[in-house]
Amino acid sequence: MITTHYDQPEGKFGKWNATIFHVNRKKCWLFTHGCSKYNVITDITASDLKNIDHIFKEALYEQLVYDGIMLDYKTLDLFIGKVIFYPTDNDRSTTGFQNQNIQSLEYWKHEYASLENMPIKDLTHRLNTIPIHIGKSRKMSDFTYPKTEIAKLIQE
């Protein structure tokens, strides 16, 4: 669902940002969780948009399993609720992470000839295990991994 009304309740996972990038003329979507900077990548065609809820949840579930974070699909479905698209909120921090991740994917893309040959789950796992800085100070304790942060969110 696409809306401009921000009064919809967020699920436990809160807000995700989505951006599109291309691999061999195919559109891929990079979803990044606003707080944990956890990433999910999936290829979505225009005809798939009517099933975006299911596609996103399935891709997220598969990525969590690949990253070793065990969660029942029904629980994940309850955590997320309904997928709602809003116009951009200009979250510069998340947009910056997404732009950096797309650059990393561009670099790794040259290892593979086509999208079919790219191990998307493995490449996304690489993104989710790159150290990130969350917090205001510059202490080493403020550095973490997206995979660690999403696991903490699930355990809460």
Rank of each mutant, 00 (worst) to 15 (best):
T4E: 06
D7L: 09
D7F: 09
E10L: 14
G11N: 07
G11S: 05
K12T: 04
G14R: 09
K15S: 03
K15T: 13
N17I: 06
T19V: 05
T19G: 09
V23S: 06
N24W: 03
N24M: 08
N24T: 05
K26N: 12
K27V: 01
K27W: 08
C28H: 15
C28A: 15
W29D: 09
W29H: 07
W29M: 06
W29S: 03
T32E: 02
C35K: 10
Y38T: 01
Y38F: 14
N39W: 01
V40T: 08
D43I: 10
I44A: 11
S47E: 12
S47V: 15
D48W: 05
D48S: 12
D48Q: 06
K50T: 03
N51K: 13
H54E: 13
I55Y: 04
I55D: 00
K57C: 02
K57H: 01
A59P: 06
A59R: 08
A59L: 06
A59K: 03
L60K: 05
L60D: 00
Y61M: 05
Q63G: 00
Q63E: 06
Y66L: 02
Y66V: 14
D67R: 04
D67Q: 11
G68L: 01
I69V: 12
M70K: 10
M70W: 01
M70I: 09
L78H: 03
V83M: 05
I84T: 07
T88H: 10
S93I: 11
T94A: 04
T95G: 03
G96C: 14
Q98L: 04
Q103K: 15
Q103T: 12
S104M: 11
L105N: 00
L105H: 04
W108T: 10
K109W: 11
E111K: 11
E111F: 14
Y112G: 00
S114F: 11
L115N: 03
E116S: 15
N117T: 08
M118I: 13
P119Y: 02
K121N: 03
K121D: 02
T124Y: 02
T124F: 02
T124A: 03
R126N: 10
L127C: 04
L127S: 05
T129Q: 10
T129N: 07
I130P: 00
P131T: 15
P131W: 11
H133D: 09
I134V: 14
I134D: 08
I134W: 13
G135P: 07
S141I: 15
D142C: 08
Y145E: 02
Y145N: 11
K147N: 04
K147R: 11
K147H: 05
I150R: 03
A151E: 07
K152M: 04
K152A: 14
E156D: 15
